[in-house]
Design a binder for these strands. Structure first.
Lengths: 114, 114
DNA sequence: CAAGGTATTTAGTCTGGCATAATACCTCCA
DNA sequence: TGGAGGTATTATGCCAGACTAAATACCTTG
């Protein structure tokens, strides 16, 4: 499947991240993989895109992050586990409404018959 | 109805303009009005957005423009009438496929149940 | 001739997704 | 013992394109 142009994702990424975190807590790398996976191969989320988005969401109080207790003998560096807040859930609900409206309105124009 | 954030429109505007022109030839101002109208009031297309987009489309050979013969006694300045080209129609078809894919893929993530 | 709706052009700003690279941690294996 | 490779985060700077804003111009009406 063809990759979706990044420009088209502008403004929709926050909703995607919140939705993934609404399913379960996750660290950055995991969110990236989850989005790629659920995106049927049409999305290629990169670090430079995801992490700044997470910082924005944290700044806005929509998610909280905490460093994982690194007692385990997992390989790799410590991870920041992200968790959606109550405020974040409310925002996600709003974003979902907005998403449906967007699809409706833009779809109505793009798909307009002659 | 709440206005859709301009960021969300990035990358989708060309398809909207082409689709409007696929319905009938129109001048810039008319396209703006048409999009606002078909957008159920949720879109507020402004000149600074539309005209540069039209120049890009013309540059790319997707639309052709010609100055209206101003024989009539209409009020206002001369208008540039835009017309979709064969290349533009092909592009519109591609964009429609892309649009459906976008809605599918992003919707699948944004609307994902817990 | 000023006011107001129509129509286009242009200049400049800003958001946010992208590419790239640096850093670091851990395991495995030569 | 060190380098290859997968995991994970941080930081820098680029750039497309939608936005705001204002200038210009045309025609009608009061």
């Amino acid at each position: 499947m063809e990759k979706i142009d990044g420009n088209k994702l502008r403004g929709h990424l926050d909703a995607m991240v919140l939705s993934v975190l609404d399913q379960r807590d996750a660290h950055g790398f995991e969110i990236m993989q989850q989005i790629e996976k659920q995106g049927s191969g049409a999305l290629h989320m990169k670090e430079g895109t995801l992490y700044p988005a997470l910082y924005r969401l944290e700044e806005a109080g929509l998610v909280k992050a905490q460093w994982e207790d690194d007692t385990s003998s997992r390989r790799g560096p410590r991870r920041r586990i992200y968790h959606i807040t109550v405020k974040g859930k409310k925002e996600l609900n709003r974003q979902r409404v907005t998403w449906r409206q967007f699809v409706d309105v833009v779809g109505n124009i793009v798909e307009a018959p002659k």
